[in-house]
Design a protein around this nucleic acid. Structure first.
Length: 273
DNA sequence: CAAGACTCCTGTCAGC
DNA sequence: TGCTGACAGGAGTCTT
């Protein structure tokens, strides 16, 4: 559920507390995340300083002198800053990183789709990151680029924009919202969409992501802001989660279909093939 | 390579 | 109320 705006909000939330801070201790209570947490991660991180935090798509990178933590929140993960001594850990509080400045970074993830990995190489070359497409908010993600990547693709446009090799960080919620904004039917084959429409789609993706980041992330129920307070539910979703309800533009009942095993809501009147 | 199915996990909710 | 089963979903991996 954390989509790119939530990840960005989380990064911005934790950054001032841990950047340039020395790691005093790391405790892992549950190693079985999506991939096993390296069993010696506490030894690798102890004494290291978090020099830089970065985001690649929905991955968060914690860069230290010796290497980089590659972290993903999966669907139910969150990061919070606590003050030491911290509240005792709950059932789903899998990893604590204690810093010399008395701050504690706690990784919580009930569904354990998240990841906490380590690399000592250039993280951009890591198998999880090296095939990622451009950042959606970068200038590399343009209408011309998407048209190039869509031209010969016989998959649906929604599946295409959710493919992290094409563009990173566009999840199910924002894919549906952007297609609605650009008035494109989610089942349209990628190769059949004009460059003009793809330009509109790219613009919609950027606009919606920026708006959501500005609001601190669209917040679904298990997202917590990094200071531990529940985030807002304020971002106005126009189609996602509104199947069976009237379209806000034309009152036609919104339809829910499945595309690539994902629930996909759209307006059959506003969004045409 | 491309496309689609399958998979990890647990909280939540509908139905009985 | 309690149980069961469906469902949600990011994205890597497997199959075709």
């Amino acid at each position: 559920m954390p989509e790119l705006p939530e990840v960005e909000t989380t990064l911005r939330g934790i950054q001032p507390h841990i950047e340039n801070q020395r790691i005093k201790q790391v405790s892992v209570r549950h190693y079985a995340l999506r991939w096993p947490v390296p069993e010696n991660i506490h030894l690798l991180l102890k004494g290291q300083t978090v020099q830089q935090l970065e985001r690649r798509g929905k991955y968060i990178l914690l860069k230290t002198q010796k290497g980089t933590v590659i972290l993903h929140l999966g669907m139910s993960g969150s990061l919070r800053i606590l003050l030491q001594p911290a509240l005792s850990a709950g059932k789903h509080d899998h990893i604590d990183i204690e810093f010399a400045n008395k701050k504690l970074l706690r990784f919580t993830d009930p569904r354990r789709f998240g990841a906490f990995l380590w690399t000592e190489d250039n993280p951009d070359l890591h198998p999880l990151l090296k095939h990622l497409g451009p950042e959606p908010l970068s200038k590399h993600f343009s209408g011309a680029y998407l048209w190039q990547r869509a031209r010969y693709r016989k998959t649906t446009i929604k599946t295409l924009i959710m493919d992290s090799k094409i563009v990173t960080g566009v999840g199910n919620i924002y894919a549906a919202e952007a297609l609605f904004a650009a008035q494109i039917h989610p089942e349209t084959l990628a190769c059949r969409i004009t460059e003009e429409h793809l330009i509109a789609l790219v613009t919609a993706i950027k606009t919606i992501l920026k708006a959501a980041i500005k609001k601190g992330g669209t917040t679904l129920k298990d997202f917590m802001k990094s200071d531990g307070k529940p985030g807002y539910f304020a971002f106005h979703l126009k189609v996602y989660g509104r199947a069976g309800l009237p379209c806000i533009n034309c009152k036609t009942v919104l339809i829910d279909i499945r595309l690539g095993q994902r629930s996909t809501v759209y307006c059959p009147h506003c969004q045409r093939n």
